[in-house]
């Protein structure tokens, strides 16, 4: 992750550029009715937050695999840590993505 303090925010909810990119991926992969820049970075993606379900998890895993070559796994504590929020999902992708 780059230093967030020097990166200018470009969305109403304060998304970093990488987060906005992942937000765009989520919205397009799942055909959500929400604008990417409106996703709250710390809000839960599943259930209460964006309201995603296990089908979305499969779709999202596919999209992330294609875009970043990052493979999601259940032993990554899927619904708890990585999918906890847009921010945590982006951090996971940044950490594991193919360079």
């Amino acid at each position: 992750m780059p230093d967030g303090t020097t990166t200018s925010t470009i969305s109403a909810t304060g998304l970093l550029p990488q987060e906005l990119e992942v937000a765009q991926l989520i919205v397009s992969a799942l055909s959500l009715e929400v604008a990417p820049e409106e996703i709250e970075p710390e809000a839960p993606l599943f259930h209460d937050g964006l309201g995603l379900d296990s089908i979305d998890a499969l779709e999202l895993a596919l999209a992330i695999s294609k875009a970043y070559e990052v493979k999601l796994r259940s032993d990554d504590e899927r619904n708890h840590r990585i999918f906890a929020s847009l921010r945590s999902l982006t951090a996971h992708i940044e950490k594991h993505r193919a360079r």
Binding site: S54, A57, L58, A61, L62, S65, K71, L72, R73, S74, D75, R78
Partner: peptide, 12 residues
Amino acid sequence: AGEAFFPSDVLD
């Protein structure tokens, strides 16, 4: 025994 949900889980 384990959970297998994502394609990577299943294949591994």
